[in-house]
């Protein structure tokens, strides 16, 4: 059962990612990214990270994806009013060849590394209990400084994004 779920969600994520790669319409790509994020969240849960799975769904699907779709819609091309060509992304042939070559080559390299690496895992594997308590305790004790830095980073990103996106007069 667990094995079937693992391979099913892995296939879902990979097929969704391949759909983004081959689709010409960017909105379809964004919705396929939604499926890929859901598959990755399921993989987190299957690896015993329940809190991270929920966080993935809330932040990526609820926040980042909505922002990306807003971005796609706000940057429509005004030149062609042909509805068939909205959100069209033309791909140069040379770019496509280079991209697939680099991606496939890097994939072969990574597979070779994973196949030859000999991981010796000590310690016991994760049990089925919830990870929320451990994450909370670790965040408030040994990872307190990164936690605070993340808070500052989010504040700075918020202020910076609001400042950049403000409707200023383009001609100074």
């Amino acid at each position: 059962m667990e094995v079937a779920a693992f391979y099913g969600f892995s296939l879902l994520a990979i097929i969704a990612a391949l759909f983004i790669l081959f689709s010409k319409n960017l909105i379809y790509g964004a919705f396929a990214l939604f499926l890929a994020f859901l598959g990755v969240a399921a993989l987190y849960v299957l690896a015993g990270a329940d809190f991270l799975g929920v966080t993935q769904i809330m932040i990526y699907v609820g926040g980042i994806l909505v922002l990306l779709i807003f971005g796609i819609m706000l940057t429509q091309k005004k030149k062609n009013d042909d509805p068939q060509h909205h959100n069209r992304v033309e791909i140069l042939l040379s770019r496509g060849i280079w991209g697939s070559l680099l991606g496939a080559g890097f994939f072969v390299l990574l597979i070779k590394i994973v196949a030859t690496a000999n991981f010796k895992m000590t310690g016991d594997t994760i049990s089925s209990k919830s990870t929320i308590k451990t994450i909370g305790v670790e965040l408030m004790t040994s990872h307190l400084l990164p936690f605070e830095i993340a808070a500052i980073l989010l504040l700075v990103a918020l202020v910076g994004a609001a400042y950049l996106a403000m409707n200023r007069n383009p001609a100074p």
Partner: peptide
Amino acid sequence: ALFCIGLAIAIT
């Protein structure tokens, strides 16, 4: 696999 597909998307 996901990483390499993402790399190809970012390039193409």
